[in-house]
Design a protein around this nucleic acid. Structure first.
Lengths: 331, 331
DNA sequence: ATGAAAGCGCTAACAA
DNA sequence: TTGTTAGCGCTTTCAT
C-alpha cells in the first residue's frame, strides 16, 4: 500500500541503493539515472520513511526540547528562537513541558532518549546530579538555555543574571532611592539566587544598608506581583522603588500600586526583568533588563547543532549581553 | 555499545520475544520471568529504542502540531492544552511554526508525514484544497484547532466566531452606542470573515446603519491596535465604542486612546476577543469574548487520539461554548 | 556508477 | 507461557 524505496527501485529498473543515493543527494549517480529515478518517485508518490532511515542511520534529525511552560511569554519566545534555527538546520523539535518538576524533567529526558533524538535542549530550574546522570546515560549532546548549571559541566547559553540585577539595582539606587524593594522569583533556583546576589552587591558597593523585609517572593506571575506590592504598601516604610524579577510580575506591581492610588513612577519607580513584549504593553511603559530570549534559544540551538555535528566548539558556556532599557516606569 | 533487547534476552536466558512482552506490559509472562527480565533490564540499563519499535509496529506515538506562531500568547495557550492531553495519552508532540505561510504549511505536513507521525494537529489560516490533498496523501488522521475549514471535510474544534462577534457587537450597541468601530484581523481568513459577519448582523437586526469607514484592519498585534485607534481618533465622528478582534490589539486600542487623552470606557468603550491573560493585565481591565484556547487545544488533541485509535467519533465538528466577560473597559 | 546484502532494534504472527 | 522467525524500510559497506 505505502510505496517504499523498493517499489521505486523496481519501477525504475535500478537497485534500491541507487534510489537511496538520489534521495539523499549522493553525487555518485549518473544524471540520466537520477532523472529516471526522480521521475518514478514522482509517479509513485514515494515519500521516504524517516523512521526506517533513523533506524538504519542512527540519526533522527529531531531534537528534544524540555521547557518549563510553553504558555509563558518568556519561554514561548525562547522556543521560537530554538525552532527557527532548528528549521534552518533541518531539525524537528519534540517539545515537552516540565513545569520545572524534577521528576517530570527526568522522565522527559528519558522519553526523548528513547525516541533517539540527536540532541537535547533543556530549559528549567537547576541542574542536579541526577539530571547530569540522566543526560550522560546516553551520548547525545545537551545544551542548556536560560538555565543555570552550577557545576558548569554542561554547555549553556545565558546572560549574566548577577550583573544584570546589580545594574538594575544600582540604576535605582543612583537615582537616590533610599528605600528599595525587590520582588524575587521562586527562591530556590540558582538564577534567582544570582539576581539576589546582584541586588545585594549593589547595596554593598554603595555602602547602603538593605532592608531584608523589603525582599519578597513571587512566582513570576502577574497576580503574585499584585500580591507582593500590596504587602509592600502595607508596610510602615513604603519603598520608593521596586526591582522585580520578571516583567509580568512587574506589571502586577505597577497595577497593584496604581489600584491603591500610587503614581508610577512618581511615588514608586518600578523596574522589570526580561523585556518581554509586555514591557511596552503597559502604562507607564516598563523600564527593564533586556534579556534576549529569542537569541538565547537561537544560539542554544545553533550550539547544539555544532555538538551534533561533532564540530569544534570554542566556548561551551555562552554568556549573551544584556542591557538596561529605560522607559517611563522609572524617573 | 548500546544495549538492545537481544542483550537483555541473552543475559536473562529468555527470548527477545519475552523481553518485548515484559517491556510492553503483555500479561502473558510468568511473574518470575517478568521479574528476572526486569532485573536484567535494570542491570544493563536497557532503554527501548522507539525508532525501531516505530518501524516494526508502524506506530510512533508522536503527533505533529503545526502552529502559526508559538510566541503568540493565543497559540501558546492552545499548544499547552494540546501538550497536556498528549502527555496524558503518552504521545509526544513535534511542534513547528508555519507563520500561516501556505507553502511552509504544506511542507511541514509533508515533513511530519515522513516522520511517520500518528496524527496531525493543524492550526492556521484557512484550509485549501491543497491542504486537504496533502492531508489525504497519507491516511493519518488530522484535526483542526481554532482553524476554519470551509468544506467541513476535516474534523475541527472551534467556537462560533460569528455568534461571538454578534454578541459582542450587540452588547455594545445595546448600551446605546450609535457610532461604533471594528478593528478586524487580517481580512482574508475565514475566521475573520465570520467575525465580520457577526458584526454586520448585529447592526442589521437592530436596523442600525453601519459605517464601513469605522472598520479597520490590523494584524492582531498590539502596535497595530495603536495604529488603528489613531486612525479612528483622527476621524470626524470618533466612535464611542470599539470591538477589537483580539485582546492584544485591544490593549493597543486602549493605550493608544489613553495616550491621546481619551478616557476608557467613558469616552470610548473597548471590547476584545479571546480572553487571553492580557485581558486582566491592563487598566481598565478588558471586557472580552471568552474563547477557551486551552480547551480547544485539549479537546482537539483528545479528538485526535480517538481517531488514532479508530474509535467511533460522535461529532466530527466540535463547537465549544464561548461567552462574554464584562470588565471595566466597557460601561 | 551501480548493485547485493547485511544489518539497524524491534514487533507480531505462528509454533511449540 | 515461551521461543522462532520473518519482516518493518532504509543506509551502508563492499564488490563489481
Amino acid at each position: 500500500m505505502t510505496v517504499t524505496i523498493y517499489d521505486v527501485a523496481r519501477e525504475a529498473n535500478v537497485s534500491m541503493a541507487t534510489v537511496s543515493r538520489v534521495v539523499n543527494g549522493n553525487p555518485n549517480v549518473k544524471p540520466v539515472t537520477r532523472k529516471k529515478v526522480l521521475n518514478t518517485i514522482q509517479e509513485l508518490g514515494y515519500r521516504p520513511n524517516a523512521v526506517a532511515r533513523g533506524l538504519a542511520s542512527k540519526k533522527t534529525t529531531t531534537v528534544g526540547a524540555i521547557i518549563p511552560d510553553i504558555s509563558s511569554i518568556f519561554f514561548a519566545e525562547l522556543a521560537r528562537g530554538i525552532e527557527d534555527i532548528a528549521t534552518m538546520y533541518k531539525y524537528n523539535i519534540i517539545l515537552s513541558n516540565s513545569d520545572q518538576n524534577k521528576d517530570k524533567e527526568l522522565q522527559l529526558i528519558n522519553a526523548m532518549l528513547e525516541k533517539q533524538v540527536d540532541g537535547i535542549l533543556f530549559m528549567g530550574g537547576d541542574i542536579t546530579d541526577e539530571h547530569v546522570n540522566q543526560f550522560q546515560s546516553s551520548s547525545v549532546p545537551v545544551v542548556l538555555a536560560a538555565t543555570y548549571d552550577e557545576t558548569n559541566s554542561i554547555p549553556s547559553v545565558n546572560i549574566d543574571y548577577e550583573a544584570a540585577a546589580y545594574e538594575a539595582t544600582s540604576f535605582l539606587l543612583d537615582k537616590g532611592n533610599k528605600k528599595m524593594g525587590f520582588i524575587s522569583g521562586v527562591d530556590d533556583t540558582l538564577i534567582n539566587k544570582e539576581k539576589y546576589n546582584g541586588y545585594v552587591r549593589a547595596f554593598k558597593e554603595k555602602s547602603l544598608s538593605l532592608n531584608e523585609d523589603h525582599i519578597l517572593t513571587g512566582d513570576y506571575s502577574y497576580d503574585s506581583g499584585i500580591e507582593a506590592v500590596n504587602q509592600l504598601l502595607a508596610m510602615d516604610d513604603v519603598p520608593t522603588a521596586v526591582f522585580v524579577a520578571s516583567d509580568e510580575m512587574a506589571l502586577g506591581v505597577i497595577h497593584g500600586a496604581q489600584d491603591k492610588g500610587y503614581k508610577i513612577p512618581d511615588d514608586i519607580e518600578v523596574f522589570g526583568f526580561d523585556n518581554t513584549r509586555l514591557a511596552t504593553m503597559v502604562r507607564p511603559t516598563l523600564s527593564t533588563i533586556v534579556q534576549p530570549m529569542y537569541d538565547i534559544g537561537a544560539v542554544a540551538m545553533r550550539l547544539l547543532t555544532k555538538y551534533m555535528n561533532k564540530e569544534e566548539v570554542e566556548e561551551k558556556k555562552v554568556v549573551l549581553p544584556h542591557r538596561i532599557v529605560e522607559r517611563t516606569s522609572t524617573k
